[in-house]
């Protein structure tokens, strides 16, 4: 308790997380998401086609099926588009901020000193576009950890290196 000081803190003067410049995900990440959606829609279309061909009763509702299919496809693409455009992250001096969410905008802040370990994940399609995902784990379990996809691989590596340095620094 020797160095104890108790100066009043001006809350307004504290660094505001909302003012941090968020970096959006790499534009190529949209391609990865589109591939995922495409695969899903293709499988769904194949399923519907099989149903229509082999089931005479389903044949009568072919227009309804296709209408529903188109609505679903449009909705999926629009929601994912909105989702990706809203995502963003920022690395500050002492923490990392991640924002995401379509109907609810969620911002999570993880201080460097609380990071347990970091993982760099390169998915199959992401790698084709030179992208990677950063997984940042804290002792707060999966809810208190970050998963940031769609970062250019070189940058992801740089961030990881930097965070690793920060972790060892705080541990000393």
């Amino acid at each position: 308790m020797q160095e104890f000081t108790n100066d009043p803190i001006d809350i307004e003067a504290l660094p505001n997380y909302e003012q941090a410049q968020l970096k959006t995900l790499h534009p190529k990440y949209w391609n990865v998401v589109m591939i995922h959606i495409g695969i899903f829609l293709f499988l769904l279309a194949a399923g519907i086609a099989a149903l229509v061909v082999f089931n005479s009763e389903a044949k009568q509702h072919i227009i309804l099926f296709s209408a529903l299919y188109i609505v679903l496809a449009v909705l999926l693409i629009a929601l994912n588009r909105a989702d990706i455009s809203r995502r963003g992250f920022a690395v500050r001096d002492k923490d990392i901020i991640y924002r995401n969410g379509v109907i609810a905008l969620t911002t999570t802040i993880v201080p460097f000193s609380r990071i347990q370990h970091i993982a760099l994940h390169e998915g199959l399609f992401a790698r084709m576009f030179g992208l990677a995902a950063l997984n940042i784990f804290t002792a707060g379990g999966s809810s208190g950890s970050l998963h940031i996809p769609g970062i250019e691989i070189g940058e992801a590596r740089r961030i990881k290196e930097m965070l690793m340095k920060q972790i060892t620094k705080t541990e000393e």
Binding site: A104, T138, A139, G140, G141, G144, S145
Partner: peptide, 29 residues
């Protein structure tokens, strides 16, 4: 003891200035 903090707001709560807070600790949220 805080590990991470999450602030969350549904878009229809924006006008009312209402939102949610989650504090993550190593023993639960």
């Amino acid at each position: 003891k805080i590990q991470a903090i999450t602030a969350k707001q549904y878009f229809w709560h924006k006008k009312a200035d209402v939102g949610h807070l989650t504090i993550h600790t190593a023993a639960g949220v």
